[in-house]
Simulated scan of single mutants.
Amino acid sequence: MNLKDVQRLLEADVLTGEDTLDREIRTAFACDLMSDVLTFESDKTILLTGLVNPHTIRTAEMIDINAIVFVRGKMPDVETLELAKENGITILVTRHILFASCGILYSNGLYGANIVHK
């Protein structure tokens, strides 16, 4: 699956990274607690969250996530979008809730990321 597929399936708007929609996505992780995001393997993973602030972008940057879907139609502020652009992170926004977004992606073959056990 690629980001264009995710955009289509979630009926999402692209806020940053329009030119990166051909990126491959292998897994998804959904969470609003950024400390939990740090506990999973992020190889070609998309993050789904309702937390729309710069902390989300900084967390994604730390573990090499290059795509985020903000759910429930939540719109990030200008600072958050600029930080995403600076870091090459694609931002999508869907009006679907987190649960439904995950279900849509799962039913179309995108599975959950693995937790790193320490």
Rank of each mutant, 00 (worst) to 15 (best):
L3R: 02
L3Y: 04
K4G: 08
V6M: 05
R8P: 00
L10Q: 01
E11A: 15
E11M: 08
A12D: 04
A12N: 03
D13K: 15
V14P: 00
L15I: 04
L15H: 10
T16P: 03
T16H: 00
T16K: 04
T16F: 06
G17W: 03
G17I: 05
E18Y: 03
D19Q: 14
D19F: 07
D19R: 12
D19E: 15
T20E: 14
L21G: 05
D22P: 06
R26M: 09
R26Y: 10
T27A: 11
F29L: 04
A30R: 11
A30N: 13
A30D: 13
C31N: 10
C31T: 01
D32N: 13
L33N: 02
L33M: 14
M34Y: 00
D36P: 13
D36W: 07
L38D: 03
F40H: 11
E41C: 15
E41G: 14
D43T: 11
D43E: 15
K44M: 13
I46Q: 01
I46W: 00
L47G: 11
L48S: 00
L48F: 01
T49Y: 00
T49S: 01
V52Q: 05
V52A: 13
N53T: 14
P54R: 00
P54N: 00
H55W: 09
I57W: 01
R58W: 06
T59E: 03
T59K: 06
E61K: 03
E61W: 02
I63F: 03
D64R: 00
I65W: 00
I65D: 01
A67R: 01
V71R: 07
R72M: 09
G73L: 02
M75R: 08
V78T: 11
E82K: 15
E82N: 15
L83Q: 04
L83M: 08
E86V: 14
E86F: 11
N87P: 10
L92M: 10
L92A: 03
L92D: 08
V93F: 05
T94G: 11
T94D: 09
R95D: 14
H96S: 09
I97P: 12
A100H: 15
C102G: 15
G103M: 13
G103A: 11
G103L: 09
I104P: 00
I104H: 02
L105F: 07
Y106E: 14
Y106I: 01
Y106H: 13
S107K: 14
G109R: 08
L110R: 10
G112P: 13
G112Q: 01
G112F: 10
G112A: 03
A113W: 06
A113D: 09
N114V: 09
I115T: 13
H117Y: 15
